[in-house]
Nucleic acid binder design. Structure first.
Lengths: 220, 220
DNA sequence: ACCTGAACACCGTTCAAGT
DNA sequence: ACCTGAACACCGTTCAAGT
């Protein structure tokens, strides 16, 4: 019997799942939909992943694997900052990964290895174990390059005028703050918020605080 | 014909949905499951909520409505701190609400009003509109009293010894940091992390940073 | 006009039948 | 022994039929 053009295996299944999620969103990645994309019957996937949950784990591992390995020979702050910004660029390539990670409750070995390596950066910088404990809690999902912005900020230009009037009357503070254009009025990002700026602003605010605690020999 | 013991209306539907989510988790709140709980046919719910999405919005509004109104006559930092800690106690009463809010992409008027009021606290304290813009981005979901802790921290006591040995070998940094007990070795919270302590630690680290920027007349 | 049962188009997964 | 089609137990929602 003629062999299939390319034999199905776990990596092919995961790569196809990531590609499908990139192209059509994570909702398109159903066992049935993915099977169709691969030209196989749905049940064929269960030979390579135990269930849907393990499929998602594998997809997340693939994304985390794209994050750059740590650079050495620089101070802890620079090392951590680079790693987190690298994670961010990876997550921007796979927008579905944020929600996928949020939906999981236990980490895979690959995710644990990533976190272990990040913790190592702080410890190598001389921060106390207790301080790093709090720092990791405070970092939260930011280690993976994303923050929890609950709602998309719609560019002001796209809001119909009658809605804008209603908003200004009902929520004057939101409108005042949302229409402020702090960093660059004619910036390349155009209308709306410069998410990259906001991400780095918060990251630096956070790293400032940690550095200050560390310099003051903070413990317990 | 005999009237039902209690006439069904929107508030009864929402209250039952919140109670069901509190008791059995948000997954138990399906249109079918909720209808059964109320002793009505599934389609009867569609008279009071347009669809599942609007049901979730109503449940979230009910939760946000439980957050204490702002106290006045104190400085902005105290006002904001109290509000956020109040939001946190509400969210702890309704553990499902965090994920429910994460799943939404557009805020309801009640959520907008809450955010407007929070922004007003910063502005009333004299912070510049530009600074408050960044601060709201940096706060993210923390305004609602939760942070994005991706994975639950399992109490060390519950980890089987062979798993503990494996972890120590594979992820020494995680183990070192996870087994540190920074704030109180014999605390009331017992094994695991004191989430309340970590939440306040991060919140105060954040407020420290904001206060410093504000005192330095930070703008743009 | 109002209410609702059956149906539709999905989903992840089980399992027995076919090769 | 391996593969897979049909089936199961769900889901949100549509819609036509019944009162």
């Amino acid at each position: 019997m003629p062999a299939r053009r390319e034999q199905l295996n776990r990596d092919r299944v995961l790569a196809a799942a990531v590609a499908l999620a990139d192209a059509e969103g994570v909702d398109a990645v159903s066992m049935r939909g993915l099977a169709q994309r691969l030209g196989v019957v749905p049940m064929a996937l269960y030979k390579h992943v135990a269930n849907k949950d393990e499929l998602l784990d594998g997809m997340i591992d693939a994304v985390v694997g794209e994050i750059e390995p740590p650079v050495s020979e620089v101070d802890w702050r620079t090392t951590v900052r680079r790693r987190i910004l690298s994670a961010r660029t990876v997550l921007l390539r796979h927008p579905w990964a944020r929600r996928a990670m949020e939906s999981k409750t236990t980490p895979t070995p690959i995710v644990l290895a990533y976190m272990d390596s990040t913790i190592g950066m702080f410890l190598a910088g001389g921060l106390s174990v207790d301080l790093v404990h709090h720092v990791m809690h405070a970092l939260g999902s930011r280690v993976f390059g994303f923050t929890q912005e609950l709602y998309e900020t719609t560019p002001a230009a796209e809001v119909p005028p009658e809605v804008a009037r209603f908003m200004a009357a009902q929520f004057p503070n939101i409108v005042a703050v949302a229409t402020s254009r702090p960093h660059d009025p004619g910036s390349v990002v155009g209308p709306g918020c410069d998410d990259q700026f906001e991400f780095e602003f918060t990251l630096d605010l956070f790293l400032d605080g940690v550095e200050r605690l560390h310099r003051n020999d903070w413990h317990s």
